[in-house]
Amino acid sequence: MSDAAAERNIDTSKMQVSDEIAIQIAAMNKWYGTFHVLRDINMTVNRGERIVICGPSGSGKSTLIRCINRLEEHQAGQIIVDGTELSSDLKNIDKVRSEVGMVFQHFNLFPHLTILENCTLAPIWVRKVPKREAEETAMHFLEKVKIPEQADKYPGQLSGGQQQRVAIARSLCMKPRIMLFDEPTSALDPEMIKEVLDTMISLAEEGMTMLCVTHEMGFAQAVANRVVFMDQGQIVEQNEPKEFFNNPKSDRTKLFLSQILGH
């Protein structure tokens, strides 16, 4: 991992993992109708950890991270995020959602609002931040993702990579303690992937707790401190990136890696 970090010139000084638990998932199961999508998931994420979840399509990796902010409901087991257990209690769900940022594959920006309005909407209406302050925060994060000059445009006028960076800024404006990424680069042209990954790396450098579903193995090697491999709704293998890529234990992982790194 340190080699990859050095290659990309990544500052690992702040990327410390604390002992504090950010997310705890215990014996969690989920069904879509009668289809058992997630089977007995157990996982603990410490604050500051950066976890990459990978696996073949249909393996339940997106469903897993969508359960963490209750976009999907789990039917058995426990998910505790930042000390709050996710149940059908709407208050807890709203609390968790305002602490957990999420970035989607298809950006899901609000097309009827400008970039700035996209970023200030939730702080103003959920956190009750004064408009002025929300705008300042939004501009701060737009600068961070390197598109402050687009603030007054509409999402439809931006490229895919720019839109995804706005989506990241929009999540950051809520000052989340955990960020979830659901295949953030899968809908992008190759040349735009880098700009989004760079943004994510700089986020990692600041010590953000991140769960990322992605097929970007370079990113996993560079910043993740754990790679989780899922298949058929189960966690098949997890390990630190170096071990995971160089010395996979399960046959399923080996097959998967040979397919995605083979060409």
């Binding site: 902010n69 959602r97 899901n108 909407l121 929009r170």
Partner: peptide
């Protein structure tokens, strides 16, 4: 995705 984004931002 619009519903999901709104939900994910904590809007009721």
């Amino acid at each position: 995705g619009q519903y999901e984004a709104a939900d994910a931002l904590g809007l009721d």
